[in-house]
């Protein structure tokens, strides 16, 4: 440890430099899960919220990527010791770590995407999404578009923020069957037994390809991967097969826009407007109205939605579009219950 003195000296110097730079601006900090900041999905969308706030509110944004689960607590800690006005953690998997950090630092404001605490923790604002509302619409339209009469879905891991997509997708398709007397089936998820197809990770593109291939082999011509970047692997398969044989339903962001290489394979996307809720949370923290609790994104308030069909519009008949609009209205006014 002969180098101790040598290494400490520049550190103090550095600390002085950093302290002197910009302590005045409002700083929003984000911790990603293992998917990383550029996952074309989830983490990226939430980060977009910070970027939007940077643009519109003039805050400073920082992020910290987690490489492994062991990093969560450490990453939150290293932000706690910085000068973050709010720390936004992204993902269900950071639920425990965020709770622990919030308890140890009661004066620090936290917000977590995709998680809510019961009872409410006073310094954490949870952001959750009624994704099943939008996924219901996706299931409905997919059931109307499929040629084989078989839809497919698979998830990353079997956790509520993932399966809620699959629930909505499944039930939307079933609703289409009931309305139109068809017999479209959905592979990969059973909302009753809570069992289905899961890659058990959020990062293997190979798995995404293999799972989509399996579903395709079983006859599915529209597949909804709910596994973050894993879905990119499915998209490359769809790209090779061609959209006539296999289309995808994107999740989280409008993948037509965020995955331009494969944009022509996406029928639509179930968007989860984490960017909207994240900027909303930052705005609340800035104007002092931040308090612990839950922020729910719905079809009604735009927190979740179905993305436009873009180039696929011609595959969706006008009649189907009309019916879809009616279903949407029904969900918003409560006449259609997506939860059963």
């Amino acid at each position: 440890m002969f180098s101790f003195r040598k290494t400490l000296a520049p550190t103090f110097l550095a600390a002085a430099l950093i302290a002197g730079s910009d302590a005045s601006a409002f700083t929003a900090c984000q911790v990603t899960d293992t998917g990383g900041i550029d996952d074309n999905s989830f983490n990226q969308t939430a980060w977009q919220g910070v970027l939007d706030a940077q643009e519109s509110l003039g805050v400073e944004g920082r992020f910290l990527e987690s490489q492994a689960e062991t990093d969560y607590v450490a990453n939150i800690n290293s932000l706690v010791n910085g000068d973050c006005d709010i720390i936004i953690t992204v993902g269900f998997l950071l639920g425990d770590a965020t709770k622990e950090a919030a308890a140890a630092n009661p004066d620090q404001a936290f917000s977590i995407v995709d998680y809510a605490y019961d009872p409410v923790i006073p310094n954490i604002l949870g952001q959750v999404y009624a994704t099943d509302e939008a996924a219901f619409l996706a299931g409905y339209v997919a059931a109307g578009v499929t040629k084989t009469g078989v839809l497919g879905t698979f998830g990353g891991i079997n956790i509520p923020p993932v399966t809620i997509f699959m629930d909505g997708f499944y039930r939307g398709a079933m609703y289409y069957n009931a309305q139109n007397g068809t017999e479209v089936t959905v592979l990969g998820w059973n909302p009753e037994t809570r069992e289905g197809l899961f890659t058990n990770n959020f990062n293997s593109l190979d798995d995404g390809r293999a799972f989509a291939q399996n579903l395709y082999d079983e006859g599915a011509d529209i597949v909804m991967p709910v596994a973050g970047p894993v879905g990119l692997g499915s998209a490359s398969l769809a790209n090779e097969l061609g959209a006539d044989k296999l289309m995808l339903v994107g999740v989280d962001a409008d993948l037509y826009l965020t995955d331009p290489n494969n944009s022509h394979v996406y029928l639509t996307s179930v968007t989860k407007r984490m960017d909207a809720t994240v900027s909303e949370v930052i705005a609340r923290a800035m104007n002092g109205s931040f308090e612990g609790g839950v922020l729910v994104g719905t079809l009604d308030n735009g927190g979740v939605d179905l993305a436009p069909f873009h180039d696929m519009a011609e595959r969706v008949p006008a009649e189907l579009s009309t019916k879809l609009a009616a279903v949407r209205a029904g969900i918003i006014d409560g006449s259609i219950n997506v939860g059963e």
Partner: peptide, 17 residues
Amino acid sequence: YVALVSGSVGSFNAISE
């Protein structure tokens, strides 16, 4: 690199981590 040093040995928290 300043951050690398300060984050590893620059504070109690850094040393603890």
